[in-house]
């Protein structure tokens, strides 16, 4: 089970540039999604005239399903400079992988709740850390793609693009660097020093 919460409004607004296509995922039954807050914010964004489409669906974590459904919105997506995704971390990563040359941003943070984890396809993984880093890393999660879960860039341990821990695993940060270069967002690497917040309690975390 998991909870998604909207990132604070200023953060979301700072992500938005140019024309935007919006995806909402109301997928899992075991998920809390901030439906009303998301709708209010999206209305506000749409009033600015820069939203090319809003699409609400389910299980965007399934790449086949996602591609099939987004096929109907191909034009609106092509018009957009970026895709803003309101879903858990897996959903954002699936969209980012499907649109490798587009800026894909996460509007939500994902928190874990103990209990049944559902049937999410495991091509992408979300640690439900409650402070989604996907907007700094081109939609590839540094916590799950890097063996050390580093959030400030690669370590010196990659050899021929492979991780020091597992030679079958590609260095997550090399993937992130490639993706950032591809979407022209290498400036994301100049963000302030990132320090993770391991507090799992909402109240402590938001302090």
């Amino acid at each position: 089970m998991l909870i998604t919460e909207l990132k604070n409004k200023d953060t979301i607004l700072s992500l938005v540039s140019g024309k935007v296509f919006i995806i909402n995922c109301h997928g899992c039954k075991d998920i809390h999604f901030p439906e009303q807050e998301a709708e209010a914010l999206q209305k506000e964004l749409a009033a600015g005239g820069n939203v090319t489409g809003i699409f609400t669906t389910d299980y965007i974590c399934n790449p086949e399903n996602l591609k099939l459904r987004l096929g109907y919105h191909a034009e609106a997506i092509a018009q957009a400079d970026m895709i803003l995704v309101f879903s858990c971390g897996v959903g954002v990563q699936t969209v980012a992988a499907a649109y490798e040359d587009k800026k894909v941003c996460a509007a939500c943070d994902t928190y874990a709740l103990p209990g049944y984890q559902g049937v999410t396809p495991l091509e992408h993984d979300c640690k439900q850390c409650g402070e989604c880093f996907l907007n700094l890393t081109g939609g590839i999660c540094p916590l799950t793609a890097c063996s050390k879960s580093l959030v400030n860039g690669q370590c010196g341990g990659a050899k021929d693009g492979k991780c020091e821990v597992d030679p079958d695993m590609e260095c997550g940060w090399e993937r992130i660097m490639r993706r950032l270069a591809q979407v022209g967002r290498l400036d994301a690497l100049k963000c302030p020093v990132q320090v993770r917040n391991y507090a799992t309690d909402d109240e402590v975390k938001s302090k």
Binding site: N152, G153, Q154, G156, A158, K159, D160, G161, C171, W173, E174, M177, L186, L189, K190, V193
Partner: peptide, 23 residues
Amino acid sequence: AVVSPCSDSVDAQLAKMERKVMA
């Protein structure tokens, strides 16, 4: 801090070096 000049991903190393300087 350390940096790896002969890494096969020099750009990633330079980006990390810049972050270390900033830090």
